[in-house]
Amino acid sequence: MRRRQSHPLQLDLFPFLSILACTIGTLILLVVVISASGLGRERSNVQILARENAQNGERTPHYLECRREGVIIHPQKVLVPKADLDQPTSTLGILLANLRRQGDREYIIIAVRPDGFDCFEEVRYQAEQAGVALGYEPFNAEWKLCVPAPGQGNCS
């Protein structure tokens, strides 16, 4: 009598692995496309906020924007022309005098546009002369500055 040889059951995993590899490849492609589409978008509205963990945590910030034509005081959006920056009777001079009287309760945050470095240097000099604390942030020319209204945490 002949014995029958038992063959172990062989299972071919090649179709499963190829489907798995195609699925992983598709998911990677999807992640790359979604990431690339998010990188291509420019931010249009940018908000500068005082950090809660900064050393100025208890102070109230005042926001300025240095541009080529002068300094814009936010949120009122008052433009102080470049020629009037050193005048004590200008809106900037009055603001710095008020901040000097306030002492350690208020400070300035300045958004510096690429074309506004000359104005920034003048504002920084005047703020240091007045003893007013300040912070500054380089700001892209295409971005629109969004300054929160007093009493609001962010822009609407």
Results as ranks from 00 to 15, higher is better:
2 R>P: 15
2 R>N: 12
3 R>G: 09
4 R>Y: 05
4 R>H: 09
6 S>E: 11
7 H>F: 10
8 P>W: 03
9 L>P: 13
12 D>G: 11
12 D>E: 13
13 L>P: 13
13 L>T: 13
16 F>V: 15
16 F>G: 04
19 I>V: 15
21 A>F: 12
22 C>H: 03
22 C>N: 07
22 C>M: 14
27 L>V: 02
27 L>D: 01
28 I>M: 09
32 V>W: 04
36 A>D: 09
36 A>L: 12
37 S>G: 06
40 G>I: 10
41 R>L: 06
43 R>Q: 03
44 S>M: 08
52 E>Y: 09
54 A>V: 05
54 A>L: 10
54 A>M: 08
57 G>F: 10
57 G>A: 11
57 G>W: 08
58 E>R: 05
58 E>C: 03
59 R>K: 10
60 T>N: 09
61 P>K: 01
62 H>V: 09
63 Y>A: 01
63 Y>G: 01
64 L>Y: 03
65 E>R: 15
65 E>V: 12
67 R>Y: 06
68 R>N: 12
68 R>Q: 14
69 E>R: 11
69 E>I: 08
75 P>R: 03
76 Q>N: 11
77 K>S: 13
78 V>C: 04
83 A>K: 10
84 D>G: 02
86 D>A: 12
86 D>N: 14
86 D>C: 08
90 S>F: 04
91 T>C: 13
93 G>S: 04
94 I>N: 13
94 I>M: 13
95 L>D: 12
97 A>K: 06
98 N>V: 04
99 L>Q: 02
100 R>Y: 09
101 R>C: 08
101 R>E: 14
102 Q>K: 11
102 Q>F: 04
103 G>R: 01
104 D>V: 10
105 R>P: 00
108 I>T: 08
108 I>N: 11
108 I>Y: 06
109 I>S: 03
110 I>T: 09
110 I>F: 03
111 A>E: 05
111 A>R: 03
114 P>D: 07
115 D>T: 15
117 F>P: 02
118 D>C: 00
118 D>T: 04
121 E>H: 01
121 E>R: 10
122 E>C: 05
124 R>P: 07
125 Y>P: 00
125 Y>M: 07
126 Q>I: 01
126 Q>H: 08
126 Q>A: 04
127 A>P: 05
128 E>G: 13
129 Q>I: 13
130 A>Y: 06
132 V>D: 09
137 E>M: 04
137 E>N: 06
137 E>K: 07
138 P>H: 09
139 F>G: 01
140 N>Y: 06
140 N>Q: 14
140 N>V: 14
141 A>Y: 15
141 A>D: 15
141 A>S: 15
141 A>C: 14
142 E>Y: 15
142 E>C: 10
147 V>H: 00
148 P>S: 06
150 P>N: 01
151 G>M: 02
152 Q>I: 07
153 G>E: 07
153 G>H: 11
154 N>M: 13
155 C>S: 08
155 C>P: 05
